[in-house]
Design a protein around this nucleic acid. Sequence first.
DNA 1: AATACGGGGTC
DNA 2: GACCCAGTATT
Length: 352
Amino acid sequence: MREMPQASDLLEWYDAHARKMPWRIAPADRMRGVLPDPYRVWLSEIMLQQTTVAAVKDYFERFTARWPTIQALADAEDGDVMGEWAGLGYYARARNLLKCARAIATDLDGQFPDTMEGLLALPGIGPYTAAAISSIAFDQPATVVDGNVERVMARLFNEHTPLPEAKPILTDFATNLTPQQRPGDYAQAVMDLGATICTPRNPACGICVWRSPCLARELGTAAELPQKTPKKPKPIRYGTAYIASRVDGALLLERRPDKGLLGGMLGWPGSDWTEGETPPHAAPIRAEWKTQTAEARHTFTHFHLRLTVKTSLVPMDREPKIGEFLALEDFRPSDLPTVMRKAFDLYRNVNT
DNA sequence: AATACGGGGTC
DNA sequence: GACCCAGTATT
């Protein structure tokens, strides 16, 4: 009978090597019974969906400084929250963040649910995040299964079934390893292991605490696991964005509809983005438009975009057909999603 | 079961 | 630049 990986071994490694993060309570403090604020756990876990710790850190600091409690966030203006989220991506997360904060403030007396069922009922909280909050904030033995855990389990048990088909199998492995003692630290420990030792490429098997029970390590298959079904190539879409500057410095912007790509975010008015060529469209305001030589290039989840940028200087009394002028002092490029900021950088380079 | 949905890091 | 990474909601 093969030896099984022991949660206690992983916890011992974590006690010595836990990464410091602004939302994390150190293992020594957790062992004294200190638990983190569920609000901070929730906020960090939403930000960490599909996003690295390095990318999240500054956003987390700014959010918690500006909105220290769930009630403060629930009371925030939509545009302020979307602007603070700008650049972090997957903007439905920010829309759901507000929905969730308001639901908790309004319906739940400002208290986070401490059950999986209660958490899963909230907007933006799926199986992973519910388990993360349950284990990290409430120290309940829920099993987190993110990409790190999937990779660690696939390697420990040499599971070659490709994802996403393998998900239930890997979840089952992960569930069986989850301890009743210190489940919050354990959850953070497996994810730390995946992020720092059991990495996608060049895993550091030589210094892994689970080195000896790992089947892939023994068989030399670690680097090729987990298997994944191949992804489709990204098509190229084309479009045009219009940056109109009024003589007083105000800029013509529009709030994008709450659904779909970049939903709820501020952006430059423009055409739809389609394959082959820019579709027919009208300018958002009557003006003499100058086409920038360089195009803004940006890659989204499922397509590449080549955005033509047209700019103009318009007089004070001209009314836009689309969007609103935003005073220069009210405009911060950091409120824009990245593709819109790239377009603005193009405009700025020729107007300096 | 498949698709929509960002942005950053690595090579 | 091409390629890799990774949760939730919707359909």
